[in-house]
Design a protein around this nucleic acid. Structure first.
Lengths: 220, 220
DNA sequence: TTGCAATTCAAACAGTTGTATGAAACTATC
DNA sequence: GATAGTTTCATACAACTGTTTGAATTGCAA
């Protein structure tokens, strides 16, 4: 074991630079300059540039996934093994949206990094995202338990659309603000979460007998 | 004016290579080799690599946008200046989905190129996408005419969610297929379009008096 | 202090990239 | 068929990239 000082200085500097300028035009030399360490340190501590990026992304995304599962598990336990669909969807998209949106000036480096990762999609990150399927299957399972007479196809489409709305809103938040001339308030994260959950819930419950009016799961 | 042979050979080769291997690892040398022309030809005919990429993307996206507006105009004329919301949404997402999805083995080079452009998002393409706002405003206008008692905010969120579902489904089509173990059939484009339109329509009409059951706008 | 491993460092490496150059080949006009 | 303009070509350029190397330094245990 070592002092770890250099290692974490690199991680912090890299996350900051990637968050600010994107993956495209940040070189290892930029990172080591920002971190105040030697160029060779990156390869010494991480093996390669891609492994550095991967470690950054993995750290942040397991944090998000843990939060998702925590909310999901809590909801299912409270409901005796079956949670309401809107609460499940809330657990699915809430942590991601909360982690990436919010007032721009108080957005954490981690949040800005994750937005970049969502927009630019470089190879090491794509590789990790592809392993996310098992994680999503847990939500598909919970959704099936919540809506037992919905077909698998509808469940998967609903899951897909929920993620679509959350991720696209993050990716294109700037454009949506411009398009709506500021009328869509992306700083009010809980409102965004509620909108996504409401639409996804409608998508999953429409045309069924028990299609109750979707409950508001968060304050508006 | 000239024979244009070299120019179009480059365009075709570039589109093919980008579609197959992505922007990340296709160099000018790969393109000119595929096209059977000299390296300097790209800079001679297009000025720079980025301008080549931009021209490819612009060509394809104005084709999509023209198709969108054609459908929108036809629908509004038929309705005497006001089209049903589901038809407007169909005009918005139909051309994009039809241009990118469909049976993989019969997917055109252009379609595969546009999927790449949607996934990788390189600088010259991002720059063009940012100019798309005026185009989207036309749809926002039509949607406002279709739903006069909906607030602007709701209109923009509905537009955002419709695009979200369409684009995300294109971007993550492979993952959705894997996640659903093939149960979600992305080759049935009209079914995908109908699903997106239905959910977006629900999002825009829920909780209003005239919230009629969304019509099926395409065969299922 | 000595010895050994872990870490840091400057420097170079090996490869690739997009672009520029200037001569050669071509094409069409008069 | 000479001329002017366009297009092609081989080649070089200049810069940048991630990675490696081997020596210097550091930290720690015996």
């Amino acid at each position: 074991m070592a002092s770890d000082h250099t290692r974490s200085a690199i991680l912090a500097a890299a996350e900051r630079l990637y968050a600010d300028r994107g993956f495209g035009d940040v070189t290892l030399r930029d990172i080591v300059a920002e971190a105040g360490v030697n160029l060779a340190a990156v390869n010494y501590h991480f093996g390669s540039k891609d492994e550095l990026i991967a470690e950054l992304f993995v750290t942040r995304s397991i944090a998000t996934n843990r939060e998702r599962l925590r909310e999901l598990k809590a909801a299912e336990e409270e409901g005796g093994g079956r949670a309401p669909i809107e609460v499940i969807l809330h657990a699915l998209v809430g942590p991601t949206l909360r982690g990436c949106l919010g007032p721009e000036n108080q957005r954490s480096t981690a949040a800005r990094f994750m937005i970049r990762a969502s927009i630019e999609s470089v190879p090491p990150i794509r590789r990790i995202k592809n392993r996310e399927i098992d994680h999503l299957r847990k939500f598909a399972g919970a959704m099936r338990r919540a809506l037992p007479d919905r077909s698998d196809v509808d469940i998967y489409w609903g899951l897909n659309f929920a993620l679509a709305m959350a991720h696209h809103t993050i990716r294109e938040s700037e454009r949506l603000t411009k398009l709506s001339e500021g009328k869509c308030d992306l700083d009010d994260v809980e409102d965004v979460v509620a909108r996504v959950v409401n639409v996804a819930t409608m998508a999953l419950t429409a045309g069924r007998s028990e299609a109750k009016a979707p409950a508001k799961v968060a304050a508006r």
